[in-house]
Design a protein around this nucleic acid. Structure first.
Ligand SMILES: [Mg+2]
Ligand SMILES: [Mg+2]
Lengths: 139, 139
DNA sequence: TAAATGTTTATAAACATTTCC
DNA sequence: TTGGAAATGTTTATAAACATT
């Protein structure tokens, strides 16, 4: 029982609406690769791989200075989780912004000259989790 | 501009689903009173009258000891807001529980003998708003 | 003025814990 | 007393309204 709160979030995406609960197989498997069955990569990308809170921690902690603009957070997450290239709902950026605001651990700071704002992780809350660390634990 | 965060929440209920966006008038006005047009009371009850956070504050602050069990919170809210007699979605109790957990201002305490748990408002956060006070301001 | 960014609330749901029958 | 059902409690996702930059 890991208690770091960074496990996979377990919520299946893409067919949660009432109108989609009885999809035909043809509607489920779109663009199956010609090679054969669906790859592990694609299978995994059907799921939100971690909570947004966890993914934002991985993202910000991936940099030396532990701070990042919103735009770069979007970019990093899309680059590191296949889910956001194919399956993510259009609201995923909304969800990231909502998590940044909601959780006290994420703190917005403004650059010395003003203008640019960076998201950081509250010092006393940061356990410096990174995606590499957590992926390692799952082996 | 009131800044107490207790204003009406402004979210219209009952036809937000895609499948309900173009209701016929006959579906909108059910059980119109024989007297004529819809009464002010009924009109108001179509709307969530305050945020759940505000309503829970009114509820707990209505008692001398400023604490209340979940069951009584349900009862008080249903008794004081017509919305919860007619229009509320089935998930309204879920929303109350979620708000109690989510907001730090609501604190669960256990009775001396154990067993019963009461919800209270964090002392430093309680502004002792009551429904009467806020209704008065709207006149 | 428009788009991007930031904040807050509602709703549904998964899941855990506690209490009741 | 105990086992299962119901109630209670916690957390996350998603959509949306709205404010600010
Ligand atoms: Mg924050
Ligand atoms: Mg609380």
């Amino acid at each position: 029982m890991s208690s770091d709160g960074l496990g996979s979030c377990g919520i299946k995406q893409g067919m949660e609406g009432k109108e989609n609960q009885h999809l035909e197989p043809s509607q489920v498997k779109v663009e199956e690769p010609p090679g054969g069955s669906i790859s592990q990569q694609d299978s995994v990308s059907e799921w939100l791989p971690y909570s947004y809170m966890a993914m934002i921690q991985f993202t910000i902690n991936s940099t030396e200075r532990k701070h990042m603009t919103l735009k770069i957070i979007y970019t990093w997450i899309k680059a590191h989780f296949p889910y956001f290239k194919h399956m993510a709902k259009p609201g995923w950026k909304n969800s990231i912004r909502r998590n940044l605001s909601l959780h006290d651990m994420f703190v917005r700071e403004t650059s010395a000259k003003g203008k640019v704002s960076f998201w950081t992780i509250h010092l006393s809350a940061n356990q410096y989790f990174t995606l590499d660390q957590v992926s390692e634990q799952q082996k």
